[in-house]
């Protein structure tokens, strides 16, 4: 990750819960049992149920939303390079690496990543948002 103009701090999920994966399976209409059936996940070689990619991306976006609650995310580009499993600890971090004046305020570009404790990098990407001028 490029270092830092403005670090975003860290967003942590101490234990990725399994039950919301069932909710996500319904919301996404995703029939893949790796996300809700522990035995199916184990048969496929995973120690636990696998978090949906969009769910992990949602967690990654949370760090930007927390850092700039008044901003509006206008683009995100995320590569999924590793799995996130139920019960794991995940940590999102990032930094502002670009700033540009736009009509609505300031457009910020953030580099972000999501890491699994003991498991390495899961997601890496960029998020662009527009932060309106104060007042």
């Amino acid at each position: 990750m490029t270092t830092t103009d403005t670090a975003l701090g860290e967003w942590t999920c101490p234990e990725v819960p399994a039950d919301p994966m069932k909710v996500l399976a319904l919301l996404l209409d995703d029939p893949n049992p790796l996300h809700y059936d522990r035995e199916a996940a184990r048969r496929a070689g995973f120690a636990e149920r696998v978090n949906h990619g969009p769910s992990s991306i949602g967690m990654l976006l949370n760090i930007v939303r927390r850092a700039f609650p008044e901003g509006r995310i206008v683009r995100y580009d995320v590569g999924l390079v590793g799995s996130v499993l139920a019960g794991q600890t995940v940590r999102a971090s990032g930094a502002v690496v670009g700033r540009e004046r736009v009509a609505a305020g300031e457009r910020l570009t953030c580099e972000v990543e999501l890491r699994v404790d003991g498991g390495g990098l899961a997601l890496r990407g960029t998020v662009d948002l527009v932060v309106p001028d104060p007042g």
Partner: peptide, 11 residues
């Protein structure tokens, strides 16, 4: 076992 490897969302 299809896998999502990248997403770009423009809003």
């Amino acid at each position: 076992g299809p896998m999502l490897t990248r997403t770009t969302v423009e809003l």
